[in-house]
Nucleic acid binder design. Structure first.
Length: 112
DNA sequence: TGCTTGACAGAAG
DNA sequence: CCTTCTGCCAAGC
């Protein structure tokens, strides 16, 4: 007995991506959230990678503050120079190890 | 139909 | 800061 469905239907994928975009659009300036957290809120805890794919390939994400989405350790997206600079401009400080200080800036989305 | 790719998570070196 | 490994799972080829 699985704790969660093993495969997404087309409709579920659509709903998931819709939730992802909706959540990202609500991230306050100067705060960050994580891929895994968004996936969990959308109802698919193990689909953190799909959150990243959605933000990368969905045209809608272009106008969203997707730079405020980092991974759980506070690392910025690989291959995306500029994300760190954008966050620093909003007042987000980075720790010596190059990670965002999640302890201070993590924003937890409100339930829908 | 099967193998490879990742804007992930987390641990390790 | 970097690289590499396992587990995860939709998307691409």
């Amino acid at each position: 007995m699985k704790d969660y469905p093993d495969k997404m239907t087309v409709d579920e994928v659509r709903a998931f991506q819709s939730d992802v975009l909706n959540i990202v659009s609500q991230i306050p300036l100067g705060r960050v959230t994580t891929y895994g957290l968004i996936a969990t809120l959308a109802g698919w805890p193990s689909h953190a990678r799909m959150v990243g794919r959605t933000l990368r390939y969905s045209p809608e994400a272009t106008q969203l503050p997707c730079h405020r989405v980092v991974n759980k350790e506070g690392r910025t997206a690989p291959g995306w120079g500029g994300q760190r600079l954008l966050l620093e401009e909003e007042g987000v400080c980075f720790k010596a190890n190059g990670h965002v200080d999640m302890n201070r800036y993590l924003w937890e989305p409100e339930d829908l």
